[in-house]
Design a protein around this nucleic acid. Structure first.
Length: 218
DNA sequence: ATCCCGAGGG
DNA sequence: CCCTCTGGAT
């Protein structure tokens, strides 16, 4: 079997986006995003945790520390207590307070709106920065590659296997083959698809709308 | 490469 | 029980 050409890989990637776009349409961000600050905190908290879990703690979190100014003065122990039901709660509590301090001290209380500055915030990496830029500021600079997007990209062989554990490289691969107009919808739509059908554990290949495009499907 | 770390599903 | 969930820092 000959190796797939870049051109056909691109065609397949675009077809994937088209079909998932028809299936899911514009999907909204479920996390609290009343303002960029609450969005950053919510996305930071959502690492390796479902959005539903995050939404359980954010009302109390933002009731007690509504803005970066209050949160910068919070004790890590108190924040920890509020978000204790989330995985990695110790690290996340520290990141919340430290990020709030940095927003106050270095950015005059406003969440920065560039990829470079966002990633200076503790707990904010490339994936979180992409979400904040996109949802919070309407800027589309990349594709947020989380566990779902990463898994789907590799099952569909849109990124080489050698990049399977390197989300940054997977993102670069997707950016290369997908026209910019598709970037924004990838995260939300692929996540919906990943949760509904292309799940990590037992993917429902029998009812998958992309089966004819997927090398992992028998 | 390894650690963080609880809830939920199968 | 074991695996996975909208990752990031060391």
């Amino acid at each position: 079997m000959p190796r797939e050409t870049n051109a056909s890989r691109r065609e397949r990637a675009i077809e994937v986006c088209e079909r998932l776009n028809r299936r899911y349409g514009p999907v909204e961000c479920f996390l609290d995003h009343q303002n960029p600050f609450r969005l950053v905190i919510s996305v930071l908290l959502s690492a390796q945790t479902t959005d539903a879990q995050v939404n359980k703690v954010t009302p109390e979190l933002f009731r007690r520390w509504p803005t970066p100014y209050e949160m910068a003065g919070a004790s890590v122990a108190d924040v920890m207590d509020v978000i204790k039901s989330l995985g990695f709660y110790k690290t996340k509590a520290k990141h919340c307070v430290e990020a709030a301090k940095m927003i106050v001290a270095d950015f005059d209380g406003e969440v920065p709106s560039t990829m470079r500055e966002l990633q200076k915030l503790p707990g904010v990496g490339r994936k979180t920065a992409n979400i904040v830029l996109n949802v919070g500021f309407g800027i589309v600079e990349g594709i947020a590659v989380d566990t779902h997007v990463n898994r789907i990209a590799h099952r569909l062989a849109l990124s080489p296997k050698t990049h399977e554990k390197e989300p940054l490289k997977t993102e670069q691969d997707l950016l290369k083959i997908l026209p910019h107009e598709y970037w924004e919808s990838v995260n939300h739509q692929w996540i919906s698809f990943g949760r509904e059908i292309c799940s990590a554990r037992s993917p429902k290949c029998a009812e998958c709308p992309l089966a004819d495009l997927c090398p992992s499907c028998n």
